[in-house]
Simulated assay, not measured.
Amino acid sequence: MFQRLDLREFDTSFTFAGRAIPAREGENLAAAILRADIKAFRSTPRSGAPRGPYCMMGVCFECLVTVDGEPNRQACLETVHGGMVVEPQAGAAEINR
């Protein structure tokens, strides 16, 4: 299980799949979700297999989530802001052009 080394209090929260997650403003979104003991951030489009962060540096795309209605966001590259709504994603969402 992931834990903070920094023991300062959380000052905000966001929701992931309807669950309130305590966090600190500006911290890494993927790390905050992992700390809440959530391992599946998305599912694969073909088999529905659960997927979670792998590289934590934006290379692998395993941590795709929908943030405030915007799909295909890499949780490892996002920072937490209070009140954000994060949803798991099924595969990669289509991009409307």
Score class of each variant (00 low, 15 high):
67 V>W: 02
47 S>Q: 08
79 T>I: 13
76 C>V: 11
87 E>T: 12
60 C>Y: 04
37 D>V: 01
38 I>W: 03
58 G>T: 14
85 V>E: 12
33 I>Y: 05
39 K>V: 12
7 L>S: 15
67 V>S: 04
22 P>T: 03
83 G>H: 02
53 P>G: 09
60 C>K: 08
92 A>V: 13
15 T>Q: 10
7 L>Y: 08
56 M>T: 10
77 L>Q: 15
25 E>F: 00
2 F>C: 13
61 F>I: 04
53 P>W: 08
19 R>G: 01
60 C>M: 04
95 I>A: 15
76 C>D: 13
91 G>M: 05
96 N>W: 07
64 L>M: 15
86 V>F: 04
36 A>H: 04
95 I>H: 14
66 T>Q: 11
4 R>K: 12
12 T>L: 03
38 I>C: 12
60 C>S: 08
11 D>G: 06
58 G>Q: 11
30 A>G: 07
32 A>T: 06
17 A>V: 06
94 E>G: 15
57 M>H: 12
30 A>S: 14
61 F>H: 13
12 T>M: 06
52 G>A: 14
72 N>Y: 06
53 P>S: 09
2 F>Q: 14
10 F>R: 02
26 G>E: 02
62 E>H: 09
11 D>P: 00
17 A>F: 06
60 C>G: 07
96 N>D: 14
57 M>G: 09
18 G>D: 05
95 I>S: 14
12 T>D: 01
57 M>D: 09
40 A>I: 00
2 F>Y: 14
46 R>P: 00
19 R>H: 08
84 M>A: 11
60 C>W: 02
17 A>L: 06
36 A>I: 07
33 I>G: 12
45 P>E: 08
44 T>C: 01
27 E>D: 11
36 A>Y: 07
77 L>V: 08
33 I>K: 07
50 P>W: 05
63 C>M: 04
87 E>S: 10
94 E>D: 15
79 T>R: 14
2 F>A: 15
49 A>W: 00
18 G>Y: 03
13 S>M: 08
41 F>Y: 08
82 G>A: 15
96 N>L: 15
69 G>F: 02
79 T>A: 15
55 C>I: 02
32 A>P: 00
25 E>N: 02
88 P>K: 13
21 I>N: 02
9 E>V: 03
94 E>K: 11
25 E>V: 02
56 M>F: 06
61 F>K: 08
50 P>N: 11
47 S>G: 09
6 D>A: 13
30 A>R: 12
46 R>M: 05
64 L>S: 11
94 E>Y: 12
42 R>F: 03
44 T>G: 03
37 D>L: 01
75 A>E: 09
69 G>C: 03
49 A>V: 00
39 K>W: 10
82 G>N: 13
1 M>H: 10
64 L>Y: 13
55 C>H: 01
61 F>V: 04
72 N>C: 09
14 F>S: 06
19 R>I: 09
39 K>S: 14
64 L>F: 12
14 F>Q: 11
53 P>I: 15
82 G>D: 15
74 Q>I: 05
86 V>M: 09
42 R>P: 00
57 M>Y: 12
54 Y>I: 07
70 E>K: 14
29 L>F: 01
59 V>P: 01
88 P>N: 11
41 F>W: 09
46 R>W: 01
48 G>L: 00
58 G>M: 11
6 D>C: 13
10 F>G: 00
53 P>Q: 05
7 L>V: 10
15 T>K: 07
86 V>R: 07
27 E>C: 02
33 I>E: 12
29 L>V: 03
